[in-house]
């Protein structure tokens, strides 16, 4: 994975991100068994890539960047590499050292609302509900690429589970709702 030269000076660099994690209440939680989560993430990224190939055109050169997505109320990081030939979304436990180009942080509920076009990302930034650092060009390109996706990402992902789509969607909505409550 790459690290951005500007990013190495950012207080949101990997050391800072992990320090924040260590200081947070969520650190009281035990490490998640990520081997259970990973197949789900693989499924999400492959189904989105299949349904929305136009997303990669909007990303342009930013498709080669590494995005660290930090749900602030969960004891994990997500690393997105939206390479059109092999897009990946991987989970890491919070104490792992992760190099990246772009960092975005918010509660799980906030991040889901933003991805699903339920909340305006600029307004979330103005209100300080999301934090960003690193390669801003890649961040803006990803935001615009995701925003051009029609419909709901959560519903699309749930739908891809076939007969399990309804319980999967309900579980995601419940989790997102609880995340929002816990963080005001």
């Amino acid at each position: 994975m790459k690290s951005n030269s500007h990013f190495s000076n950012s207080p949101f660099g990997k050391q800072k991100a992990n320090k924040d994690k260590a200081n947070s209440l969520k650190n009281l939680l035990p490490p998640l068994p990520l081997f259970i989560l990973q197949p789900l993430l693989n499924h999400i990224v492959s189904s989105v890539a299949k349904k929305h190939p136009e997303l990669f055109n909007r990303l342009g050169d930013s498709a080669n960047k590494v995005f660290l997505i930090d749900p602030s109320d969960l004891p994990l990081f997500l690393i997105l590499q939206p390479n059109p030939l092999n897009p990946t979304l991987k989970a890491y436990n919070q104490n792992e050292i992760i190099e990246h180009d772009t960092y975005i942080c918010g509660t799980f509920a906030t991040l889901m609302q933003m991805i699903d076009a339920q909340s305006d990302s600029d307004a979330l930034f103005f209100n300080r509900e999301i934090r960003v650092s690193g390669d801003s060009e890649a961040m803006v390109a990803l935001r615009n690429a995701l925003d051009d996706m029609e419909g709901s990402l959560a519903k699309d992902v749930a739908k891809s589970f076939g007969v399990l789509s309804k319980p999967v969607l309900l579980a995601m909505q419940k989790f997102s709702k609880n995340s929002g409550k816990e963080n005001g």
Binding site: F12, D20, V132, S136, E137, M139
Partner: peptide, 30 residues
Amino acid sequence: PANFVHYEEDENRNLTTRLGEFAIDCIGCG
């Protein structure tokens, strides 16, 4: 241009916004 924009937030959530080499705002926590 986004490739010139950099955000830096310290441990107290004070946010510094830079365009190129210039700091153009420092926004306190909250």
